[in-house]
């Protein structure tokens, strides 16, 4: 007769619960979090457990399965990539100096802002291109896995109390106009000028489960893949590679490295510090 197995330890139980949650969501809803970076995924799970007034991950699993609005809330948690306009101003300075001149050589420019969250980065790029006189021949595809997040991005509205930070970022990023020209205040919110979104297509797209949908001259996917494990990073890098034109530019977050990815040899740095790479093979 088999010996009874010793009880599993608490942290192993937690790992089991996380696996079951990811598996359950995948089976029931098709969203695939099974290869999300575990430390961040775990943290966001516990935040949702607490926000729902629950006490365990298993309880959250039961609730997301039986209560689709709870799944939507959890999806919003997982989708929101806390961002700021002109976050990492040095990146946008380099973008102006090194990417914009490349784009001038194209008659028409397609940019993919992959994982656009609520649109802060998308509008930052739109502003840079406006100021460079390139916006009218550009189309920016801004995608996020959450329809609710994309819907929020489409409103072009942000809390007014963020404008001080965004203005400082804009100036540090090399902006030369008055940042307030780009938005109109309305109580506690501001709305950015609709002309900034004229050539922006906001759409739902899931980097994990959806395919490439076009070829782009620039893909920005910054601080999105930090939420994925290395296997999933590899998968998404292939998708991005397949979606870039030859000599297209890939922009990553400032603390991401392309060195761990098998496509690294297909790129040369356009600016290593800004994590801007050119596809050359």
């Amino acid at each position: 007769m088999a010996e009874p197995r010793p009880p599993v330890r608490r942290r192993d139980l937690e790992a089991v619960e996380i696996d079951l949650l990811a598996e359950g969501i995948y089976e029931a809803y098709g969203f695939d979090f099974r290869r999300y970076s575990r430390p961040s995924f775990r943290r966001r799970i516990w935040r949702r457990v607490e926000a729902e007034g629950l006490s365990s991950i298993s309880e959250l699993l039961a609730r997301v399965l039986h209560d689709p609005p709870c799944m939507q809330r959890f999806l919003s948690d997982l989708s929101v990539n806390v961002s700021a306009m002109f976050r990492d101003p040095a990146f946008f300075r380099v973008f102006r100096a090194k990417v914009v001149p490349l784009l001038r050589t194209y008659p028409f420019v397609r940019i993919w802002n992959a994982g656009c969250s609520t649109g802060e980065e998308t509008l930052s790029v739109a502003i840079v291109l406006k100021e460079a006189g390139l916006y009218d021949r550009t189309r920016i595809y801004a995608t996020d896995m959450s329809e609710a997040t994309v819907e929020q991005a489409r409103t072009l509205t942000y809390p007014i109390n963020k404008m001080r930070e965004y203005t400082a970022n804009y100036i540090e990023a090399g902006g030369t106009r008055s940042f307030s020209e780009y938005y109109a205040a309305d109580g506690e919110r501001v709305m950015f000028h609709p002309s900034l979104a004229e050539n922006v297509v906001f759409a739902q797209h899931n980097l994990v489960t959806d395919r490439s949908f076009n070829e782009f001259h620039v893909i920005l996917c910054r601080n999105v893949m930090i939420y994925f494990d290395r296997v999933l990073q590899e998968h998404v890098h292939k998708l991005l590679y397949d979606s870039l034109t030859h000599f297209g530019v890939l922009g990553l977050g400032g603390r991401e490295t392309i060195e761990l990815v098998s496509h690294r040899d297909a790129y040369v740095p356009l600016d290593e510090t800004a994590r801007l790479y050119r596809k050359v093979a």
């Binding site: 970076s37 430390p39 961040s40 943290r43 990539n81 806390v82 930090i226 977050g253 400032g254 603390r255």
Partner: peptide, 20 residues
């Protein structure tokens, strides 16, 4: 931890996040 990021670990490796 880099400025502006949360630093987290899993066994043997680092992970970053830009959460709140």
């Amino acid at each position: 931890a880099p400025p502006g990021y949360h630093l987290l670990v899993e066994r043997g490796a680092l992970a970053l996040s830009t959460d709140e």
